[in-house]
Amino acid sequence: MLEIKNLHVTVDGTEILKGIDLSLGSGEMHAIMGPNGSGKSTLSYTIAGRAGYDVTEGEILFKGQNIVDLSPEDRAAEGIFLAFQYPVEIPGVANTTFLKEALNAMRRHRGEDELDAMQFVRMLREKVKELGISDDMLKRAVNAGFSGGEKKRNEILQMSVLEPALAVLDETDSGLDIDALKIVADGVNRLRNPERSMLMITHYQRLLDYIVPDFVHVLAHGRIQRSGGKELAQELEKNGYAEFTKTDAAA
């Protein structure tokens, strides 16, 4: 599904990612952990194609195609979704309007028929119920005045509406209370299927109790320092990142 090879990324003249290798098979759930500032969000933005994140070396293969030169909207239409660490507010644009426009833009791109207002609302009702999102939140402007937790739930709602092939979740758990964490985790788990891969960035082992990953990677200093199974997360929880920061300093 996703194959990242020797990826080097420069932001404002500073090299942040220094040779990432990562491979996600269909239906797999990977977790990425790592200290603040290690380049996790940089990786997620680069996968999504944000301007200013210059790939200086290496490639990102998605479904076998190198996507490095694709626009963000084309990558989205191909099935790449990023749940933002800091979702953005769009004043005056109703959440529903935004969701419908996004979905139909992608359907157009794929040559599918657009959903009309009725079909869309019916579909949305279902998804909303599962995530405990209020009607009020749908009517309000995108993320405007939403609490931290509401913003994160809204990201998951978008993911469930857009049904991507690859979802990158950047700290979707941060800012959630225990109940919301469970709701979001349930939402994510419901979306897991053999055709959909997920890359989940988190700082907390706690999330991995609810969403059990197939693989865990440690990112530090712009490189994947170690990969393993879910037990790696438990080890990190105990020992912290000292080992990896040291490794790098010594190198």
């Binding site: 963000p72 239409a77 933002f84 769009i90 644009v93 935004f98 426009e101």
Partner: peptide, 19 residues
């Protein structure tokens, strides 16, 4: 804002119109 909308598949001009 533009990147957020484009990440959701909305092209740049439509994103501007929406904003």
């Amino acid at each position: 804002q533009l990147f957020y909308l484009r990440q959701r598949g909305i092209d740049e001009e439509t994103a501007v119109a929406l904003i």
